[in-house]
Design a protein around this nucleic acid. Sequence first.
RNA 1: GAGCCGGUAGCUCAGCUAGGUAGAGCAGCGGCCUUUUAAGCCGUUGGUCGCGUGUUCGAUUCACGCCCGGCUCACCA
Length: 501
Amino acid sequence: MEGEKNNTMSEINKLISERKQKLEELRKMGVDVYPRNFATTHAISQIREKYGTLKAEEKTGETVSLAGRIMSLRGMGKASFAHIKDQTGKVQIYIREDVLGAGNYGIFKRFDVGDFIGVMGKVFSTKTGELSIQVEKLTLLAKSLRPLPEKWHGLKDIETRYRQRYIDLLVNEQVKNVFSTRSLIIQAVRKFLDNLGFLEVETPMMQSIVGGAIAKPFLTHHQALDMELYLRISPELFLKRLVVGGLEKVYEVNKSFRNEGVSTRHNPEFTMLEVYQAYSDYKGMMDLCQKVILFIAKEVLHKEELVYQKNKINLGKTPWQKFSLYELLKEHTKIDFTNIHGLAEIRKVADRLDVKYKKDSPKHKILDHIFEAYVQKKLIQPTFVLDYPTEFSPLAKAKKDNPELVERFELFIGGEELANAYSELNDPVEQRRRMEKQVEDRDIGEGREAEVDEDYLRALEYGLPPCGGLGVGVDRLVMVFTDSKSIRDVILFPHMRKEAE
RNA sequence: GAGCCGGUAGCUCAGCUAGGUAGAGCAGCGGCCUUUUAAGCCGUUGGUCGCGUGUUCGAUUCACGCCCGGCUCACCA
């Protein structure tokens, strides 16, 4: 029964069954089709560095061994060329029957594009000047059963690229660059903060109370404890608890999860950097924010200019420009919002500006919609936006001279919101008042009610020193640094619905 | 969640306007070929045309529903 089933499966696709047949033939010829290991002397890039200057038809006496995946095959009877690829690059190999012997050449004839092989041979340059390996010994390292996408057009189908990222990485060279850049950016962040004495920490992703942002959470369940938990929407409240505990400079780079719609700039799980520094404030965070991004530019791009979606962005012109929210709104809508107070009034303005809002949207939300529609996309050069309304920022400290505004900024680059920071509210009485108010009209979905985080308030009662906090959307930062239009292009395995059977 | 666009061979794409049992290139397979590189030349296999229902003598093509994806919008960062 099992055998029959497998047999039908293998006949689904002729190309796969042909490869399986070659695999069986190789086994019969005594070849281990999935051997244990292979010792190499060089990565392909090292061969290129060492011998890149060979002249056409020049031969070296040096024998090298390397391993990689066959990416192309060109057979010409008793000789063949192929390209093999490892993580560092590609190199051509040249295989001759008279060197290998008829038996081994017969084994090679059963290799396919996609197979992993080990190669031992001498480095030389062909008459067209291509660096190549004259193969003396070939070892199959793993047989591939599925055909790779075609060499010329490659893999274009977006759905397949995201679902089968392993193939995308293999055949679309730029994709690997995006993700190595992502890795370099995160490394640079750590290097920068570690050097300043920040401590990297990890706080719970499974939380029993939702806090630190206003998004809807994912709900999950702990079986043994029979307890409901949320996946965190932000690490903020835990990081500030650590500052209460005397960890004066902490940061975390990790995932948060928000149960909202997906789009080119939203993935349900995304990576945030959050930084907290005792005795600092939003101005200190502004300085830190600018410095860390410039450090990334230096480490990753080795320059201070970049291009994002055809816009030239100059990070080097410091300090980055600062505008108040109301200044920018006035400039782009010709309306002075400092004089607009009531909900009815701001609705009228939104209607006039043709900005849509929901019936139950509060005033600050409508203001934000207007900002997004009229201002945000124009903030191409690095711009700090200041002076957000207090009702919009429940965890931020109010300005000394104006309790309606908070000490907060958001950073925009290339029209994307990249960072958000404020002077942390550390007055436990005021924080309780704001949290209680927020909890009232908050919908967290799944029929659950929002709760005040009593332990967080207790921590504040013990005393949180003056503190600056900064959050950076790492995925969006990577988008800007790699000129990627969609967040899915900077996340290895972006969220997808389940594939149809 | 709404609107628009898309899903045809392993990959990249035609065909659908005007219904008549599906085509190319590459890959594969067989043959020739010992410096090719989108190798070449000759021959050739390969498709539940995303899934389902309806209309029709007949549906890849028309209609409706569903699934998956993209873009825009909404929610959000």
